[in-house]
Design a protein around this nucleic acid. Structure first.
Length: 531
RNA sequence: GGCGCCGUAGCCAAGUGGCUAAGGCAGCGGAUUGCAAAUCCGCCAUCGUGGGUCCGACUCCCACCGGCGCCUCCA
């Protein structure tokens, strides 16, 4: 049974979709995640939510739900206007550029489970209509071309962030004198001269910050949907105001479950993105200043990180920690999980060596097997029994509020069991392979793939692997492949003659060039050292 | 000040009212190897401090200490 932590109730609740399941149809689940304001290149903090919710959607789909995931793009906003004026660019052009940056980052991270990216500018009609309804129902009022939501009229305001109205006295961007109460917030803002604007019943203007999410979520997911997600920092006032608007408008709950991810924190010193670590002493971590990644801290664009780390590494790094906890970011931390990931990549190569076909070509079930089907199928061999045990641990962890960190732990164990099987059965030696043993290994690997898929991990061969394959197969790096073969053959001849000095000279010389040789029963393999 | 989170091995990080407290990185010992690499096996924590509840707490409650977030259109 899947359970999720709901910020509304502050406890883990059983996950039961809003829409009743019709017999013979998969239960439908709607998820809305607050996306970026596209005025600057995204930094790693912006990627946490998308990675997590991509994995959440995958896991829900695997669990049998039909999931729709919406992430909005805020392409009209005060910061966007300010930035476009600063850079002398039309706002739409700036937004388009930054949206492209965002999309590129998502793609590199392997995030492809998002169904729609509605833009604020494309939702203007719905936003205006939504605002009109709120005015008509008496929850909002016009004031000098602005429209404000009257927080005092909303029942249950503060139920998400557990705050009283009296505690919420934002100045609303210097528009206090136009508002009836300090806590009231803008649904619509009159345009100042030179600002981008859209026509409305209250004159030319643009939407306030919160209204687009209410309008978009309703447009794609309905008045009440299952999961609303976002960073912890959005809980107040953004999500609180979304709830106020939507529930005032519809008279029913906006979302059943509110999930908030922890924020990425970084040390300015060690966590410098895209550059060399400037740490003066080893083991000096305690002296770091750790703080939230934010605009004010001037963190580097995500794109610069990609020069240092693969998208999959960053994805793995994010998933390594439970989503509700803050993630302490530093290059050293990422390097550590990157080292850990090698365990998987090496196993995949090993698997291909003994199995003859690629791990990446394995066809894993996209749906969780009902009941104990997987376990009973596994009962046929001790290996699969052990694998199934770790599979169960993985599922248990994920069922418990998407505990990806616990799940990854189970994945490491699973690989160990598979490696041990290859060791014990000496499957690296071609003569020791039997169809039964290869079958068992393959079935175990299928289970690994099945689970890793739900996290969106190890779906494609790494770029480095692909490059090397082309070298070995005579691709663009053909010469390197041929030279390597020559050197390996020379070394093999030396070893045969017990001329280990020459053999070691070759291996050590190659090591200097960051090329690693590994002797195996089936021959010597070479690979480029990572980084 | 208000609301809330966190403190588990050298570092990172799961988890649990009672059973061996996952996993990763680093380290140590062993198997394997011509030597390595990789892999496997083993070792490496009484869970911030002090109280309380309980037959029993690391897990629940309180206090304290320490770290952090939000209360500002920051994911």
């Amino acid at each position: 049974m899947l359970r999720v932590y709901n910020t509304l109730s502050r406890i883990k609740e059983p996950f039961v979709p809003v829409q009743p399941t019709r017999p013979g149809e998969p239960a439908k689940v709607g998820i809305y995640l607050c996306g970026p304001t596209v005025y600057k290149p995204s930094h790693i903090g912006h990627m946490v939510g998308p990675v997590i919710f991509d994995a959440i959607k995958r896991y829900l789909a695997y669990s049998g739900y039909e999931v729709t995931l919406i992430v909005n793009i805020t392409d009209v906003d005060d910061k966007l206007i300010a930035e476009s004026q600063k850079r002398g660019l039309p706002m739409a052009r700036l937004a388009a550029e930054m949206t492209a940056d965002y999309m590129h980052n998502l793609q590199v991270l392997g995030i492809d489970a998002i169904d729609h990216f509605p833009r604020c500018t494309e939702t203007m009609g719905e936003i205006i209509e939504f605002t009109q309804t709120l005015v008509a129902k008496g929850f909002a009022y016009e004031s000098q071309g602005d429209v404000y939501f009257e927080v005092g009229k909303a029942s249950g305001y503060g139920k998400l962030s557990h705050r009283g109205i009296e505690a919420t006295q934002g100045d609303g961007g210097g528009m206090a004198e136009r508002k009836r109460a300090g806590a009231d917030f803008a649904l619509w803002k009159a345009a100042k001269p030179g600002e981008p604007s859209w026509p409305s019943p209250w004159g030319a203007g643009r939407p306030g910050w919160h209204i687009e999410c209410s309008a978009m979520s309703r447009k794609f997911l309905g008045e009440t949907f299952d999961i609303h997600g976002g960073g912890l920092d959005l809980m107040f006032p953004h999500h609180e105001n979304e709830i106020a608007q939507s529930e005032a408008c519809h008279g029913k709950p906006m979302a059943k479950y509110w999930l908030h991810n922890g924020l990425m924190q970084a040390s300015d010193e060690v966590g410098k993105v895209g550059g060399r670590s400037t740490r003066p002493h080893e083991g000096d971590l305690a002296a770091q200043e750790v703080g939230k990644i934010s605009k004010s801290k001037g963190s580097a664009p995500f794109r610069e990180m990609l020069a240092e780390f693969s998208g999959e590494t960053i994805r793995f790094f994010i998933l390594f920690t439970h989503y509700r906890r803050p993630i302490d970011y530093s290059q050293q931390r990422i390097r550590e999980v990157e080292t850990g990931m090698e365990t998987f990549y090496r196993f995949f190569k090993r698997f291909e060596r003994v199995n003859g076909a690629s791990y990446y070509a394995l066809n894993a079930p996209g749906r969780r097997a009902k009941g104990d089907a997987a376990c009973s199928a596994a009962g046929s061999s001790p290996l699969l029994g052990a694998v199934a045990e770790h599979r169960a641990r993985f599922l248990e962890a994920m069922d418990d509020d998407f505990n990806t960190g616990g799940g990854i732990g189970a994945l490491f164990d699973l690989v160990r069991v598979l490696n041990k099987f290859v060791d014990d059965e000496k499957l690296e030696e071609p003569g020791r392979r039997t169809p039964e043993k290869l079958d068992a290994l393959r079935n175990g690997a299928v289970m690994l793939r099945e689970l890793a898929n739900t996290l969106g991990l190890f779906r494609q061969p790494r770029a480095a692997e692909a490059g090397k394959e082309s070298a070995q197969a005579g691709g663009s790096d053909e010469l390197a492949g041929k030279l390597m073969k020559l050197l390996i053959d020379l070394r093999a001849a030396s070893r045969k003659k017990k001329d280990f000095a020459t053999a070691d000279q070759i291996r050590n010389g190659l090591a200097e060039l960051d090329i690693v040789l590994e002797d195996r029963p089936g021959g010597t393999e070479w690979s480029r050292k990572q980084r």
